[in-house]
Design a protein around this nucleic acid. Structure first.
Lengths: 148, 148
DNA sequence: CCAAACTGGTTTCATTTGTAACCATTGAAA
DNA sequence: TTTCAATGGTTACAAATGAAACCAGTTTGG
């Protein structure tokens, strides 16, 4: 292990990114093939299904998306009539977003698929490994927070 | 924890992606600010620095990049005169890529920065946590392999 | 009050990306 | 041989993304 060489295959940022990319790509087939959703759209659907009602800003915070992504995803789901916007009483800049019946139906259909995907992945690991995954991810999240 | 609700914040693919994205984005500042490199360009530089000489196909395999990304990254590094192409003797479709002096200099400058970045991140964790990260990532990589 | 700073959200534009088609070359098969 | 499938690599086109400008509206300070 020469000190002036970087071994890409074991470099943490690279490994992490490649892993996340592969998992995400694999999982995206679930919602892409089913309904032709993009990732931002899926996250929006998922966020609203989980919480019921949110503003675009809240959505962005919850699902770690830039506001332009949120804006575009919301526009597309609205076009499909999967969500509706209700202007806020007090602040007319704000809109409250909620799923329609159709949107909720799509959400209810997706949830078990998502859980199954995650379940299958975890099922290929030992209990110890699953614990390590949980600990490791939490540790990295925390370490990253501190870094900034 | 209702069974018909998916908690996005603890959903593995989402969490993993968000984490990788944040780490990668943070790290990208290192090479973006320093030389204005994109991620594919950085990976190309890194791969060639590490292995010395590679073909575009090998580069793609080593660094998990689609061949169009490789092609474009190589073209850009060539434009900067950081790498050169040498046609293969036996197979005229193949080119062997290698860093020039300038490319190697850039590589040598980047390596310690990359290692420092990774080191700082790991330094914010306990030894147990670092072990969990290693075990967890390896487990996920393996589990994902099996899945397909 | 009123101007300036700020905030929620959208749009514009340039860059990045992925897919598919493509070109040239090679290998295998008839 | 000649043809046909496969392979290394590039290019063209469409879609996804990010940064910054933008347009309401709202708040703050003088």
């Amino acid at each position: 292990m020469e000190p002036d060489i970087l071994e890409l295959e074991s470099f943490l940022p690279y490994r992490l990114y490649r892993l996340a990319d592969a998992v995400s790509r694999e999982f995206s087939r679930v919602y892409k093939e089913r309904h032709g959703l993009t990732r931002p759209e899926w996250r929006t659907l998922s966020g609203l299904g989980q919480r019921g009602t949110m503003t675009a800003t809240e959505l962005g915070e919850q699902s770690a998306m830039h506001k332009t992504k949120v804006s575009r995803a919301v526009a597309e789901l609205e076009r499909r009539r999967w969500l509706t916007r209700t202007p806020d009483e007090n602040d007319r800049r704000v809109e409250h977003l909620a799923l329609t019946k159709a949107g909720l139906a799509a959400y209810r259909e997706m949830v078990p698929l998502a859980k199954a995907f995650e379940g299958e992945l975890l099922a290929r690991m030992s209990a110890d490994e699953r614990a390590a995954v949980a600990t490791g991810i939490a540790a990295m999240e925390r370490a990253l927070e501190e870094k900034s």
